[in-house]
């Protein structure tokens, strides 16, 4: 990289250093938050009473048995969207680590953000499916006619899908910016 007027501007360099620090913090959060979410999910499924789980799932009280298999199955099914999101956060973490190490515009940044937007989309898209499967699973031992299939598509899901689409478009623009930065880096 050439020594540019940008690199000689103290104000800009301070801003860049702030960007590096902020990126390092976000990268750390991308590691901690999925772990906390997984822990919270585990505590919920293995620590909360079955009647409360049923109420949360929109099922009648007593429809959910509190046995180990039900709790484990519930944990796995409700963890599917989180799994996708966790993968995406791991990807975007790499992007922020790259920025924190000084690679402000890099293909790694674009790749990580694009994968994150894809994971957001997948996570939001499979959540209604996972919830439906969860309701079926939780009521699998109920009598005939009492099994339930709960479908729930909320505005939050649609907003996350929209956000994922917007982020995808931004990464597209960023990819162009990376190409431009690469060209500029070859001007001395």
């Amino acid at each position: 990289m050439s020594s540019t007027s940008f690199e000689k501007d103290p104000a800009r360099m301070r801003a860049v250093r702030r960007l590096h620090r902020a990126s390092a913090i976000v990268a750390g959060a991308c590691l901690v938050i999925p772990a906390l979410l997984a822990l919270g999910l585990g505590l919920y499924w293995f620590g909360v009473e079955a009647s409360r789980i049923a109420a949360q799932a929109g099922l009648p009280a007593g429809a959910v048995s509190g046995d180990w298999a039900t709790r484990t199955g519930g944990f796995v099914l409700s963890g599917l969207p989180l799994l996708a999101l966790g993968w995406g956060l791991a990807q975007v973490r790499r992007s922020f680590l790259a920025v924190a190490s000084g690679q402000t515009f890099s293909p790694a940044l674009v790749r990580g953000l694009r994968n994150f937007s894809a994971s957001l989309f997948v996570s939001a898209a499979i959540k209604p499916v996972a919830d439906a499967l969860l309701s079926l699973f939780l009521t699998r031992n109920a009598g005939q006619g009492e099994r339930m299939l709960a479908l729930n598509i909320g505005s939050d899901t649609l907003l996350i899908l929209l956000f994922a689409g917007i982020l995808w478009a931004i990464t597209w623009i960023l990819a162009e910016a990376v190409d431009l930065a690469d060209d500029l880096a070859q001007i001395v």
């Binding site: 050439s2 020594s3 060209d183 070859q186 001007i187 001395v188």
Partner: peptide
């Protein structure tokens, strides 16, 4: 960078 410039392996010169 000066070496790259000497070799013509740059896209431009300010």
């Amino acid at each position: 960078n000066l070496s790259l410039l000497k070799q013509g392996k740059v896209k431009g010169v300010r």
